[in-house]
Amino acid sequence: YLPAAEGGAAMFAPPAEDFQGPSAPPASMFDSVPGYEGTVAGGGGGFLPPPMPSYPVPQPEPGPHQPHWNIPSISEDTARDAFVLFASSKCCYSAAPAKDGVITRMDAFNTYRYRLETFTESRSTEWKHDPYHGQPVDAFAQPPPGPWDIPAKSPTFFVDDKQVIKVPNTSSLKVNHLKHDWRTKKLPCLCGNGEKTLQKLFCWVCNGSGFRHGDDRCDRCSGRGRENCSQCHGQGSKQCDTCQGKQQLLVYINLTVKWTNNTDNYVVEQSSGLQLDNLSNVSGKELFKDTQYMVYPVTGLPDVTVVNASQRLVREHQNKFCQNSRILQQRQTIELIPVTKVTYSWKGKSHVYFVYGNEFRVSADNYPATCCCTVM
């Protein structure tokens, strides 16, 4: 973060001349705090770039060259069992094609999936305010620590998390900017006199007379003939939500620390006909795993598209996430996802389905025996 600037004395904002109904203090309520000059109320000051490390950054090391691993095609019994289970899970599918169809061909189309995970920490700040109930006021006692100098909890790598921390030495006391009645410590209600607007002025129970039957006073309007304002309950004034009637606010800076696992996947195209979207929800056989502060692109794979994807994604992640966050750890994996294309014959016609992933999921877009079901 930028070097600390000279901070001025605390500024107290006077009450506004006329109550307009704002719900938060104006920007003038917040002091300029050294090291936090860009911090604003409500919207944060944007993500704060981390300082340059004072120690040498560990250099990534290339992983070992990987052999070309193939997963053998699944057995015919496994393919049939998966197909029967798939048909049984569909209310409108007959199980006959899955049980009685004759498998004529099985083709393996194994495919690689490369995944890069970059676990980052980012920090942002914003001004906050609370009603003053005697909390400690520590602004200007000493300079506050920098946003990246404040200790946070130890994160669990590759798991999203967040922590909000009140920045020390930024809490100061301010007079609420809203116009209060100094005797009641309340705000005037927008209704003006405790009654509803003219469109709904008269009590609907007594029609404005104040009485229901003869001399019986109307209970709803207490005999006034007019409905009370629902905001102030007929008092003409109400407690301020901002300061809860205390007329003073404790303003301070909150630091939000976010840990984010940023993930990108690359799946090698395969010519089986199965849509790649199907592979996003299944697992494969892990061939390679590398975890470092910053990883080195994979090398030595026979599939050059995976090597190229690794080089591209590693470069993109390191350029993108070093700008406004701190990279804590990277992890790259390569999986080999089994895909088997099954051709079968049923009632003299040829059909196709796919069995894929370690979970033996099935995709059969043109199942030959479906019906329309109506739920009564």
Results as ranks from 00 to 15, higher is better:
Leu313Ile: 09
Leu313Val: 08
Arg315Gln: 14
Arg315Lys: 12
Arg315His: 12
Glu316Pro: 01
Glu316Gly: 00
Glu316Ile: 06
Glu316His: 05
His317Pro: 02
His317Gly: 08
Asn319Ser: 14
Asn319Asp: 15
Asn319Glu: 15
Lys320Leu: 07
Phe321Trp: 15
Phe321Ala: 05
Phe321Lys: 04
Phe321Leu: 14
Cys322Pro: 00
Gln323Met: 15
Gln323Asp: 15
Gln323Ser: 14
Asn324Leu: 14
Asn324Ile: 05
Ser325Val: 06
Arg326Asn: 14
Leu328Met: 10
Leu328Ser: 06
Gln329Arg: 11
Gln330Ile: 01
Gln330Glu: 15
Arg331Leu: 11
Arg331Lys: 12
Arg331Trp: 07
Arg331Ser: 11
Arg331Met: 08
Gln332Val: 01
Gln332Arg: 01
Gln332Phe: 07
Thr333Ile: 13
Thr333Trp: 11
Thr333Glu: 15
Thr333Met: 12
Ile334His: 03
Glu335Ile: 05
Glu335Gly: 08
Leu336Gly: 07
Ile337Tyr: 06
Ile337Val: 06
Pro338Arg: 06
Pro338Met: 09
Val339Ser: 02
Val339Arg: 00
Val339Lys: 01
Lys341Trp: 00
Lys341Val: 05
Lys341Asp: 02
Val342Cys: 03
Thr343Ser: 13
Thr343Pro: 10
Ser345Tyr: 08
Ser345Phe: 05
Ser345Asp: 15
Trp346Glu: 06
Trp346Ser: 11
Trp346Gln: 07
Trp346Val: 04
Lys347Tyr: 08
Lys347Asn: 10
Gly348Gln: 09
Gly348Lys: 02
Lys349Ile: 10
Ser350Ile: 10
Ser350Val: 06
Ser350Leu: 03
Ser350Thr: 15
Ser350Arg: 11
His351Thr: 07
Val352Cys: 06
Tyr353Val: 02
Tyr353Ile: 05
Tyr353Asp: 10
Phe354Gly: 04
Phe354His: 08
Phe354Asn: 06
Phe354Arg: 00
Val355Leu: 06
Val355Arg: 01
Val355Phe: 04
Tyr356Ile: 04
Gly357Lys: 13
Asn358Glu: 11
Asn358Trp: 04
Glu359His: 03
Glu359Pro: 00
Glu359Leu: 09
Glu359Ser: 01
Glu359Lys: 02
Phe360Gly: 00
Phe360Glu: 01
Phe360Met: 06
Arg361Phe: 09
Arg361Gln: 12
Val362Ala: 03
Val362Cys: 03
Ser363Asp: 15
Ser363Asn: 14
Ala364Asp: 14
Asp365Arg: 09
Asp365Gln: 13
Asn366Glu: 07
Asn366Phe: 05
Tyr367Asp: 03
Tyr367Cys: 03
Pro368Asn: 09
Pro368Phe: 07
Pro368Cys: 07
Pro368Leu: 07
Pro368Thr: 03
Ala369Phe: 05
Ala369Ile: 00
Thr370Cys: 08
Thr370Lys: 11
Cys371Asp: 11
Cys371Thr: 14
Cys371His: 08
Cys372Met: 14
Cys372Lys: 09
Cys372Trp: 08
Cys373Glu: 02
Cys373His: 13
Cys373Asn: 12
Cys373Tyr: 12
